[in-house]
């Protein structure tokens, strides 16, 4: 589903990603962990080309994201993204946020889009918030609307960029619950997070990154109980 080969990303003089190789197969849930500045978010943002890669290749569902012939807007509907800061559109209701993509990108008619939107809001447990503006939603609710907004494009992959890091602790659970549900339904997911409980429960694989390279990857059980690399050990001991 996602194939990353020898990916390098540089911001000016700063080399953020230094030769990343990663394959994510369909239905797989991959969790990426690592200290801040290790390049995990950048890696995620290279997958839907929110960042232009410096060299290497990123293939999503068979399409090379840097190929000029690839319609990048199409890739972005295939790979939905959820942000740390939610980035809901404040001038639209929850339902409006969810239906914007279907109506403008998928050219769905309004009635169809709203039916889909309500169904998705129901799925994330926010059926009664359809007509509420983001300002009147809690952080957890906002993030669940953001997830529904991405799902509305019927993506094949969901990318999560620290989806619970901006939330008050008591709101983290409701978002993780929705994500777990998605994972169980077989959604292909790449999740940058420090939520070990989530990783343990739904991840097929955990990747540990530091200083722009993948240090270690393994099943969650193996990597948490038996980290091989000392940098992984050091990081995990601080997070737990």
């Amino acid at each position: 589903m996602i194939e990353i080969r020898n990916l390098y990303k540089r911001f000016g003089d700063l080399e953020v990603l230094k030769g990343i190789d990663l394959n994510v197969s369909s239905g797989e849930v991959t969790v990426i962990m690592g200290p801040s500045g290790s390049g995990k978010s950048t890696l995620l943002r290279c997958i839907n080309r929110l960042e232009e890669i410096t060299s290497g290749a990123v293939i999503v569902d068979g399409y090379d994201v840097m190929d000029p012939a690839t319609n990048i807007n199409f890739i972005r509907t295939e790979a939905g993204m959820v942000f740390q800061q939610f980035n809901l559109f404040p001038h639209m209701t929850a339902l409006g946020n969810v239906t914007l993509g279907p109506t403008k990108v998928r050219k769905m008619n309004r009635a169809e889009a709203e039916a889909l939107g309500r169904e998705l809001l129901d799925k994330v447990g926010l059926r009664d918030k359809a007509d509420v503006y983001p300002d009147h939603l809690s952080g957890g609710q906002k993030q669940r609307v953001a997830i529904a907004r991405s799902l509305a494009l019927k993506p094949k992959v969901m990318l999560f960029d620290e989806p619970t890091s901006a939330l008050d602790p008591e709101l983290v659970g409701e978002v993780l619950e929705v994500m777990k549900q998605l994972g169980r339904e077989g959604m292909t997911m790449v999740v940058v997070t420090h939520e070990m409980g989530f990783a343990r429960e739904v991840a097929d694989r955990v990747i540990f990154m530091d200083e722009g390279v993948i240090i270690e990857e393994n099943t969650p059980a193996e990597i948490f109980s038996n980290p091989r690399h000392e940098r992984t050990q050091g990081f995990l001991s601080k997070v737990i």
Binding site: L50, R76, M81, F83, N87, L100, V105, A152
Partner: peptide, 11 residues
């Protein structure tokens, strides 16, 4: 982030 969110849903 608003631009990124818009672009990320394929607009």
């Amino acid at each position: 982030g608003q631009t990124e969110a818009g672009r990320s849903i394929g607009l």
